[in-house]
């Protein structure tokens, strides 16, 4: 059962990104990966005088609620560095009591993602490049390139090479 949460007063979150950057510095997440992200709802106009603009930091799957810092008795780094001082870390029970006292707050209970392997390098090779010069044995293939006319949507005929297998009705193409 989860015990801890992050309470955020989003009436006053100014969207300064301190939580995002403090988290990345603490954990070493690279560009493109985050432990918490600031989302911005707005600005969009309610009427000619009033505008909706709320910023809400949302813990990601990588957030482990700064388990190491908390074990050493310290606050999570986002909470410590928040410029508007709108973040609070604690037990769900105590934060739920705080939630009752004021509106425009949100209580997040992250699933601690301390064991996710975010260090794995993302494969950025194009699927097309991977297939260049690939030697793949196929039972059925396009026999005649000239049957493919890119200018029209007409169906094309497949010349099928029948080996031992019978062609299923479903696979017949006109």
């Amino acid at each position: 059962m989860p015990s801890y949460g992050l309470l955020i007063d989003y009436e006053y979150c100014s969207g300064c990104h301190a939580c995002e950057v403090a988290c990345k510095e603490e954990h070493g997440f690279p560009v493109g990966k985050f432990g918490i992200r600031v989302y911005s709802d707005g600005p969009w106009q309610i009427n000619n005088r009033q505008t909706n603009w709320n910023k809400v930091p949302v813990p990601t799957d990588l957030c482990d609620l700064c388990a190491d810092r908390v074990a050493a008795g310290r606050k999570p780094t986002c909470v410590h560095h928040c410029l508007a001082n709108v973040m609070k870390f604690g037990t769900i029970d105590e934060l739920a009591e705080d939630l009752k006292r004021k509106d425009k707050q949100v209580l997040f209970v992250p699933r601690p993602g301390g064991d996710l392997d975010w260090r794995e390098e993302i494969d950025t090779t194009s699927v097309v490049d991977k297939l260049r010069g690939a030697d793949i044995a196929l039972e059925y293939s396009v026999a005649d390139d000239s049957a493919l006319d890119g200018a029209s949507n007409a169906s094309f005929k497949l010349a099928l090479q029948r080996e031992e297998h019978k062609l299923d009705d479903r696979q017949k193409v006109d």
Binding site: C16, A18, V21, A22, E25, H80, H81, C82, L83, N85
Partner: peptide, 8 residues
């Protein structure tokens, strides 16, 4: 104890 992204 608060800091902006530039100091962080």
């Amino acid at each position: 104890g608060r800091l902006c992204p530039r100091c962080l």
